[in-house]
């Protein structure tokens, strides 16, 4: 029963947050002073046809709350409105761009998981020794490198000086596409590797000091088994939590990295749409990122009690 209550409450929070976010994203337009037609047609010729089209599309002749309800209703039908710059449905435009961003985020995620966990575990198991100190210093440095700096340095070294990788574009076909994503995914991963490594290290150290680990060791269990079953498993909680937070950062940073490497993904679409005053697309992408972020964090919250039942017990007791 406890688990049910927990799930119901998390889903409730999820819905409330997404609803509030949709309000914020939609009504943010009302913050702009002046005529909404003029705002939506900035930088375009306000011909009578264009005015009529944009008025009809956004229902600008209706009251704002009615516009919101229509917009929300359309969202549920998968209709995100029409892009002003491409004269296409926003859904179509997003679908075209999705594969690149998905590939970039997945590749970066794999890098973050492997490198971050490995660095954190190695540091924790060598606490206070040279390996630990070296990893700590390296991670402090990495953590201070914004993704666009990583992108510039990688381009300068590996694309321009050494010429090993392409510096621009998405490439053609699957293999070439992946090849074009290698440098960008490294640039995207760097900061987050440092974050995961630091959390893994401190979470492992916290567990290594616990009595149950001492008991397991004194019972003569092999070190690898103690580390895997008793330390790492119990250390998963904080690592999982930070991974949830990390997703939002990854999605936003991907817009910087895609822009730096000229990749045609969702992130560079966001930047391009802001640049070309295409508000419907901006609105859709911002809401999409927030929804993904809230969704991932809810999943993380729900996974936590599966890995560590004490979390569920604690939440129910509160």
């Amino acid at each position: 029963m406890n688990i049910f209550k927990l799930v119901a409450r998390k889903l409730g929070t999820l819905l409330v947050t997404v609803f509030a976010a949709s309000l914020l994203v939609f009504f943010s337009r009302a913050l702009v002073p002046g005529d909404p037609v003029a705002f939506l047609l900035r930088g375009r010729k306000p011909s009578p046809e264009a005015i009529a089209e944009v008025t009809k599309q956004f229902g600008l002749d209706k009251p704002m709350w009615q516009q919101y309800i229509d917009w929300l209703g359309n969202l549920f039908h998968g209709d995100l409105g029409r892009s002003l710059q491409f004269r296409q449905d926003v859904t179509t435009v997003l679908a075209d761009r999705l594969p690149v961003t998905l590939g970039l985020v997945v590749l970066a995620g794999v890098l973050i998981a492997i490198l971050g966990l490995a660095a954190g575990i190695i540091a924790a198991l060598n606490r206070g020794r040279t390996a630990d100190r070296a990893i700590l210093i390296a991670m402090t440095g990495l953590g201070a490198i914004p993704s666009f700096v990583g992108a510039i340095v990688l381009i300068a070294v590996f694309a321009v000086q050494l010429g090993w990788f392409p510096s621009y574009g998405s490439g053609d076909g699957f293999a070439d596409g992946i090849f074009h994503l290698i440098l960008p995914s490294i640039a995207l991963a760097l900061t987050f590797v440092a974050l995961v490594a630091r959390v893994t290290r401190s979470s492992m150290l916290d567990q290594l000091e616990r009595e149950h680990v001492e008991v397991a060791t004194s019972r003569g269990l092999p070190r690898s088994r103690v580390v895997l079953r008793h330390v790492l498993r119990n250390a998963t909680g904080p690592i999982l939590t930070v991974s949830g937070v990390l997703v939002a950062g990854l999605l936003v940073a991907s817009s910087i990295v895609e822009q730096a490497f000229g990749l045609a993904g969702i992130g560079s679409l966001l930047v391009q749409s802001v640049d070309r005053l295409d508000f419907p697309v901006v609105q859709a992408i911002v809401l999409l990122i927030v929804i993904i972020f809230v969704l991932v964090n809810t999943i993380v919250d729900l996974l936590a009690p599966l890995i560590d039942p004490r979390v569920a017990a604690g939440a129910a007791a509160r």
């Binding site: 929070t13 994203v25 939002a248 966001l270 911002v286 809230v294």
Partner: peptide
Amino acid sequence: FDLLFAFPALLLAILAVALF
């Protein structure tokens, strides 16, 4: 605050540029 935490700072800044 919980609602605002769902908006990464840079995303909010990009939205602000789109508006203003």
